[in-house]
Design a binder for these strands. Structure first.
Lengths: 237, 237
DNA sequence: TCATATAATTCATATATAAGACTTAGATGA
DNA sequence: TCATCTAAGTCTTATATATGAATTATATGA
């Protein structure tokens, strides 16, 4: 393989592999071709393939298992419950969140919602409202918004606790990263009734936008959280 | 270099380099010995040294500059203001935080404070109270707590905007990472007066513990933030 | 059924070469 | 004489490849 432009070889290969990944060339269940196979396909050495894959592993898009192969990172039940869930007990341990769906309907998106999802203003969205319990206590009221066009019939399905697994399995939409914005708010009437709160209790409002393999915003999720026994945790490096 | 136990060579080298780093063997201003020099010192190949350093770079403990060398990551004015600062404008851009010191005194630590800092209960702490402005508005009231024993005379100094730089330059304490816990609260009298608030405005309370090279907790910092024009942001991968 | 061999994978290490960045000697000119 | 530019040399990290080891799953046979 010749070196083009000024980008190092491994970076070019990384982009080619990533592009192949996005195009759905390999199933999310089977391993990728082995490093040696990819090496001969791209006509570079195994070490170069390895370095390319290193980057994708660092981005959490792939993971490796010595002796078995390299796989696409999926949101499966076990890890998905924790990977994108930053609420923990005050001692740092993480509770297992449970979900209770309250409703699931379609409606026209508001301006700021459509902007966040990068769909035309006024497009129809699917709204899921659900209550989440931690250690048995109702702690979070969660509003989930996705494009109806992108997730047809989602509102007619049985929604599992881990939605990202459903997106991946049934819609071929793979969530790779998310951005969260956090504010302090006071609860509105809906939150007060579902979480059974005093109106003066301050809440954490988490606004999350989740992105897919193409780095397109796919889901807007607004969570209202009571933070008595639980705290939002974040590591800085 | 012989391989001991089952740990790969590069991992052993990484730990040795890290230990040397902690012991203060190299100045924080000069580059480390070159990869080839380290290679001959440890009797391994340059590639193995490189892989060891890769890990330390990934941990943000070192950084590299092609052609110049490998350096210890310091908290200098430019980056330090942003690196450990997660508040941004709602559009995602980051304001430059300013600081106004309100007081700096010593007192006996409370139980939870000493626990967080891993010092004996009742040890004397230095408390810095300061107001931080973003875009000219008073937004954060910050209480900073460190061990007096660890930072002698800190209360008699002129405190800069970026404390971590001071810790590093004057006390040889290098902050490498931090953990933040976030809750929603209502302001107490002190906060109300300094931030000029209505008592019913909910606040973000950020409790940060900062760790040094030895992974010892060094500083406890509790920030009370108004989140009207600003939000706490966090990326999930 | 269990141990063992075998074939597949990724992982670890060493070597060689490329590319970037400072240093310094020397030329140039005012 | 002094300041300034230039280019070569030598330092640095970055990239690419080759070889063998470690790990895992599977097939094989007693």
């Amino acid at each position: 393989m010749q070196k083009l432009f000024n980008a190092p070889l491994y970076a070019q290969i990384r982009e080619e592999i990533f592009a192949a990944l996005r195009s759905g060339r390999w199933s999310a269940n089977d391993p990728l071709p082995s490093e040696t196979k990819l090496a001969s396909e791209f006509s570079v050495s195994q070490g170069t393939i390895r370095k390319a894959i290193d980057d994708l592993v660092a981005q959490n898009i792939l993971y490796r298992h010595q002796g078995r192969g390299t796989f696409i990172r999926r949101h499966d039940e076990q890890q998905s419950l924790f990977r994108f869930f930053n609420l923990s007990r005050t001692d740092g341990t993480k509770p297992v969140p449970e979900s209770l769906n309250i409703h699931c309907k379609t409606r026209k998106g508001l301006k700021h919602e459509c902007l966040a999802l990068q769909v035309p203003t006024g497009d129809r969205l699917i709204e899921v409202l659900r209550l989440r319990r931690l250690d048995g206590q109702p702690v979070i009221l969660e509003t989930i918004l996705v494009s109806q066009q992108r997730f047809p019939e989602l509102n007619k399905r049985d929604l599992p606790n881990t939605l990202y697994e459903l997106y991946s399995d049934d819609y071929n939409v793979h969530i790779t990263r998310a951005e969260e914005q956090i504010q302090a708010t006071l609860p509105d009437a809906t939150v007060i009734s579902h979480l059974n709160l005093e109106p003066t209790i301050p809440l954490l409002e988490i606004r999350r936008i989740a992105f897919d393999l193409h780095d397109q915003p796919v889901e807007l999720r607004i969570s209202q959280c009571v933070t008595g026994s639980f705290v939002y945790t974040c590591s800085l490096n």
